[in-house]
């Protein structure tokens, strides 16, 4: 990966919640380098701080210490226009499709907002075509959907619409926070395929936040393993999964039931 352009770098990134005796360090001096077109998985169990780290990368949480560099420069999120510029490049998909949608608005509004964020001045016709194209990318029919409310859709359909949103925005970096943990196995394959296609077409960097080691292995080039706020091991996916070094990584991989080898339940 080192021959690719460095896109996001985290140095000593730390997040502390609360103060005084109730202080908890959710993310503890984490370093990372993400490159253009790379697929990275941040693997950890609940409470490992992976979601907090993701929120910091998204610019939704302020870091308590350390820094994030974007394209070689420290990222600036001071003013609203700074943030708007950052979010043009860095986008996200969340875990729960049902809570990602505002129940009060039709599906169309979600896609309309994308056109607005990009600042495009389009005619009604062009807008329609653009939204239709995005929907057909995720195998949805815009004609049938645009007038519907989110609760009329299935979880898989909603999550696909979220991908359509990303397709319209074509950001440089996509942070996907457990995008498939609430959809069925069959929809999961579809969603993963679509995300991989986005990477191939736009050279997008995708960061998966997941607890699913199997998924991380399947999709990513690089894996970071997180435990209690720290990154305990990182490297190419093949190496991490097939030849783990850190004891926590070994434990994590051996706890997952597999189908070609025995599952040691221990004593």
């Amino acid at each position: 990966m080192s021959n690719r352009e460095l896109l996001i770098r985290g140095k000593d990134l730390t997040k502390v919640f609360g103060y005084g005796t109730q202080k908890t360090t959710a993310v503890d001096a984490v370093d990372f380098d993400f490159h253009k077109g790379e697929i990275i998985s941040l693997v950890g169990e609940s409470g490992s701080g992976k979601t907090t780290l993701a929120k910091m990368m998204m610019g939704l949480l302020k870091e308590s210490g350390g820094s994030i560099e974007y394209k070689g420069k420290p990222r600036r999120l001071k003013s609203h226009s700074d943030r708007k510029r950052y979010w043009k490049d860095i986008q996200a998909i969340f875990q729960d499709p049902f809570s990602s949608f505002n129940l009060f608005y039709r599906v169309e509004k979600l896609l309309m907002d994308c056109i607005k964020l990009q600042g495009l001045k389009l005619s009604k016709e062009e807008q329609y075509l653009k939204m239709k194209e995005a929907c057909s990318f995720v195998n949805l029919k815009f004609e049938e959907l645009h007038n519907k409310y989110p609760f009329e859709l299935s979880g898989g359909q909603m999550q696909r619409l979220m991908i359509a949103r990303i397709f319209m925005l074509h950001p440089k970096v996509l942070i996907a926070d457990e995008p498939t943990s609430m959809v069925d196995a069959c929809s999961r394959s579809t969603i993963l395929d679509m995300l991989l296609k986005l990477r191939d077409e736009n050279e997008m960097t995708i960061i998966f936040i997941t607890h699913d080691v199997g998924l991380a292995y399947y999709v990513s080039d690089t894996i970071y393993i997180m435990e209690k706020g720290k990154i305990v091991e990182s490297g190419p996916a093949e190496e991490i999964i097939l030849n783990p070094q850190h004891s926590y990584t070994r434990q994590l991989i051996s706890d997952v039931p597999k189908i070609h080898s025995a599952w040691d339940l221990g004593s």
Partner: peptide, 26 residues
Amino acid sequence: GRDHVHIAKISGHSTPKIIVFEILPY
């Protein structure tokens, strides 16, 4: 803390707009 509020934020909506369109209806 809900995701649709996060989505609205990273879609570049301003705070008053988020309050009126994402919070108030609920």
